[in-house]
C-alpha cells in the first residue's frame, strides 16, 4: 500500500527532532535527532524499549510538545501547536467521565466551535458497533467500547493524520486483535495517515506499512522495516514464517539495544540513576 511516488512530498516529516527535559537531576534527552518521513495514507508503527521517547516523539508530531530543536512538517508546513488536521488517540481511552458518549464525541467540536458532521459520526459509530450507545457514560462501557469511542472521537472531525499513543495497550489480547482489525477496516474505507506507538510487535506488524524501531534513551531511529503483506490482512498471516522472522528481528533489535545500555550503565554508575 505504500506506493506513493518517491518524489511526492511526505505527509508528515520529522526532521532532526530533539527534545530535552530539564529535570532535577539535570537535562534529560528524550529523543535525539530523530528523522522520519510518513507518506500520505501510510500506517507507520513506532516500537522500542520503554522510556525510549516514543511518546515524546508522537506528542511532538501532534504539536502538544515543543521540540528543543528540529522540526515537524505537515504537508511541508511546520507544526508548532495543536493542528486541526491531526487527531490523537491516547493511551487510555481518555473519555471525559462526566459526559455521555454523544457529549464526549461532541467535545472536539465544542472546543473548536464548529458543527459536527452527524452523518459521518453516525456512520463511524455504526462501524465500531456503538450505535445506540450515545446516552451511556464511560463507566457504563467496557474498555474496548471506550477505546472504540475514543477512536470515533479522534476521527469525528476528519483529521488527515491520526496519531495513536499505545491506544490498545490496556486491552486484553482478544479485544486488541478486534481493535486492530477495526482500525484496518476503517483505514481501508477512508485512508488517513496513521502513526501508531505500540508495545506489541504483533500489533505493529499486523497494522503497519512500515515499522520504526527506536533505540533506548536518548531515542533515535534504530531501524525501519517494510511490512509487505497485502491488505486486508487476516489474523492467519500472524502465524506465517515471515511474520515470525520479522518479529524476531525486531525483538533482537529492541533487546539488543537494551543490552548495550546495561553495559554502558555499568561502565558509568552515574547513569543508573537516570533510569
Amino acid at each position: 500500500m505504500s506506493a506513493a511516488a518517491p518524489s511526492a512530498q511526505p505527509k508528515l516529516r520529522v526532521k532532526n527532532a530533539t527534545k530535552a527535559y530539564n529535570t532535577r537531576s539535570g537535562e534529560l534527552v528524550a529523543i535525539d535527532r530523530c528523522s522520519l518521513d510518513v507518506k500520505a495514507g501510510e500506517i507507520v508503527s513506532i516500537v522500542g524499549p520503554s522510556g525510549c521517547g516514543k511518546t515524546t516523539l508522537l506528542w511532538s508530531m501532534s504539536g502538544l510538545h515543543k521540540l528543543s530543536s528540529g522540526e515537524v512538517l505537515l504537508d511541508g508546513k511546520p507544526v508548532n501547536g495543536p493542528n486541526p488536521e491531526i487527531g490523537m488517540v491516547f493511551q487510555d481511552a481518555n473519555l471525559l467521565p462526566w459526559r455521555n458518549l454523544d457529549a464526549n464525541i461532541n467535545f472536539p467540536f465544542e472546543i473548536k466551535g464548529t458543527k459536527p458532521d452527524r452523518a459521518w459520526i453516525d456512520d463511524l459509530l455504526g462501524r465500531v458497533g456503538l450505535s445506540g450507545f450515545g446516552g451511556r457514560f464511560p463507566r457504563e462501557l467496557s474498555g474496548g467500547m471506550q477505546q472504540r469511542a475514543a477512536l470515533v472521537r479522534a476521527l469525528s472531525f476528519k483529521p488527515s493524520v491520526l496519531l495513536m499513543d499505545e491506544p490498545f495497550g490496556a486491552l486484553d489480547a482478544f479485544t486488541r486483535e478486534e481493535m486492530n482489525q477495526l482500525v484496518e477496516e476503517i483505514w481501508m474505507a477512508a485512508p488517513t495517515t496513521i502513526v501508531l506507538i505500540t508495545h506489541s510487535i504483533e500489533e505493529a506488524i499486523f497494522l503497519s506499512d512500515r515499522i520504526v524501531v527506536m533505540s533506548p534513551r536518548p531515542g533515535r531511529v534504530a531501524a525501519v522495516h517494510d511490512v509487505p503483506f497485502a491488505r486486508p490482512r487476516s489474523l492467519e498471516i500472524m502465524s506465517t514464517r515471515e511474520v515470525f522472522d520479522l518479529t524476531n528481528v525486531i525483538k533482537r533489535e529492541i533487546v539488543g539495544e537494551q543490552k548495550s545500555r546495561y553495559v554502558r550503565s555499568s561502565d558509568a554508575p552515574v547513569a543508573q540513576s537516570a533510569v
Binding site: 502538544l64 501547536g81 495543536p82 491516547f90 471525559l96 462526566w98 472546543i111
Partner: peptide
C-alpha cells in the same frame, strides 16, 4: 494531564480547559 492534553490537542484555550475540564473534574 491526559484530559488536559486531550483538550489542548483540539486547540483549547486556557479558559476552555478551565470550564470544560478542570471545573467539571473539581465538581
Amino acid at each position: 494531564s491526559g484530559k488536559i492534553a486531550l483538550a489542548r490537542s483540539y486547540g483549547a484555550s486556557t479558559l476552555q480547559i478551565f470550564w470544560k475540564v478542570r471545573a467539571p473534574m473539581a465538581l
